[in-house]
Design a protein around this nucleic acid. Structure first.
Lengths: 218, 218
DNA sequence: GTCTATACGCCGATAGAC
DNA sequence: GTCTATCGGCGTATAGAC
C-alpha cells in the first residue's frame, strides 16, 4: 500500500482517537515518514480531508442506495439503520468536527454541503419507498416527509458528537451504534406497527452480527 | 463595566462571528487591552469559556423553568420554543463547537455534561406537563417520553451547526430561529391536534415580536 | 518517492514596571 | 488593574539533496 493511502488511513484513525486537531506533524510521526513526503502526496492538510470525505461519501452511498426491486422492505430498512450506524462509527471524528474541518477551506465546505444535500435526498427517497409500503395511521404530506428526512439526517450526523460528550471516551464505539434506536423512534409514529416490529427484529439480528465481527476485527 | 465582563462579551461576539478558534490575541486586540490584562482577569482561555457556559446555563434555565401554576399551557410551550431558539442564536458558536471547546479542559467538560443532563431533565419535565394536559391519540411510556426529550435536546443543540453548514454565513441568524418548526414536528404525533394548532399560533405571534425587537437591537 | 533541515507565523502564557 | 516586552512551543509548509 502506497504512502498516500496510508496517510488517509492514519488521519481517520488518529482523528477518531484524538479529535480533529490532529496535525500533519502527528501524522508523519505516527507513520514514521517525513513531512516532505506527506507534502509530496498532498498539497496541504485540507486535501487529506477531501480524500476522507470522498471515502465517506461512497461508503454512505452503498448503505443508502435504493435498490430497484428490493422485496423485503423491513430487512432492507434494518440494514440501513445498522449500516448507517457503522458509518458513523468509522468516521465519527468527521461528524463530530465537521464544522471546524470544513470552515477553513471553501472547496471542502462545498463538498460537505453536497454531501448533506445528497444524503437528505437519499433518506427522503427511502422514506418514500417505506411509507408507500408500510404506512401507519398518521399520514405525511411530501413536505412533511421532507422535514422528517431532514430531522433524521441532523439527528444521525449529530449523534457522534452527542455520544462523545455524554459517554466516557472509552464507551464511544459501543454507544454510537445505538443510534438506530433514536432514528426508529422518529419514524415509528408513521409506520404500521407490525412492520415496525419486523424492522426491530431484523435490526437486533444485524446488531448481533456486528458485535461479533467488530469484536474480531480489533 | 469592568474589563472582566467586557472580555466575556467579546468572546461571545467574536466567536459567534469567527468560530471557536478565536484566541486571546484577537480578544485583546478587539478590546484594545493588553494580553497581561486579560491574564490578570482569567487564568487561561478555558476560564473565559467557563464563564460563558455559566451565563448560557442560567439564560436557558430562565426559558425552561417549569412555572408552578402556569395556566395557559399552549402559550407557555410556545414561549419555550421561541426562547430556546433565541438562546441558540445568542450562543450559537458554543453549540456549534461545544466538543472542541470542551474537550481541552476536564473542568469544562464536566460543566458541559451537567448542562446536558440538566437540560434533558428539564425538557422531560416540560413534556410531562404538556402531555398530561394535551396528549393526542398516541401515548408514550415514561421511557419513551425520555427518549423524545433526548431527541429534542440533540436536535436543538445541533441546530446551529447544521444551519451554519447549509445556510450561507449571512443567513445564519435568520435561519437559526426556524428551529422551533423542527421541534414542533417531533412533538406533533403525541399532541392533541387542536392544542398543537394553538401552540403554532402563539409561536407565530412571538416570532413576529422577535423580528421587531431583534431588528431594532442591531 | 522519500529524505533532512529549516523558515515562518501564531498563540498561549509570564515577568515585572507603573 | 493595566501596561510593555518577551519567551517557548507547535503547526504548516517549503527547499533541495538523494
Amino acid at each position: 500500500m502506497g504512502n498516500r493511502d496510508r496517510i488517509v488511513d492514519a488521519a481517520i484513525e488518529l482523528m477518531n482517537k484524538n479529535g480533529c486537531v490532529v496535525g500533519t506533524t502527528q501524522l508523519v510521526e505516527h507513520l514514521s515518514i517525513s513531512p516532505g513526503n506527506l507534502y509530496y502526496h498532498f498539497r496541504n492538510r485540507e486535501e487529506i480531508l477531501v480524500e476522507v470525505l470522498s471515502r465517506l461519501t461512497s461508503d454512505l452511498d452503498a448503505v443508502l442506495k435504493v435498490k430497484p426491486y428490493e422485496t423485503p422492505i423491513a430487512s432492507w430498512l434494518a440494514s440501513i439503520f445498522i449500516g448507517g450506524a457503522q458509518v458513523l462509527r468509522q468516521y465519527r471524528f468527521f461528524f463530530s468536527s465537521s464544522l471546524e474541518l470544513v470552515m477553513k477551506d471553501e472547496r471542502l465546505a462545498d463538498q460537505y454541503r453536497n454531501f448533506t444535500a445528497r444524503g437528505i435526498k437519499q433518506v427522503d427517497a427511502i422514506l418514500k419507498r417505506v411509507l408507500a409500503n408500510a404506512a401507519g395511521q398518521l399520514r405525511l404530506t411530501a413536505a412533511e416527509r421532507g422535514r422528517l428526512a431532514e430531522n433524521m439526517w441532523v439527528l444521525w450526523t449529530s449523534w457522534p458528537r452527542y455520544i462523545e460528550i455524554v459517554a466516557g471516551a472509552g464507551n464511544v464505539e459501543k454507544e454510537i451504534l445505538r443510534n438506530h434506536e433514536y432514528l426508529e423512534f422518529l419514524l415509528r409514529p408513521y409506520l404500521d406497527p407490525k412492520f415496525f416490529k419486523a424492522v426491530v427484529t431484523h435490526v437486533r439480528k444485524l446488531q448481533r452480527l456486528d458485535n461479533q465481527t467488530w469484536g474480531v476485527m480489533r
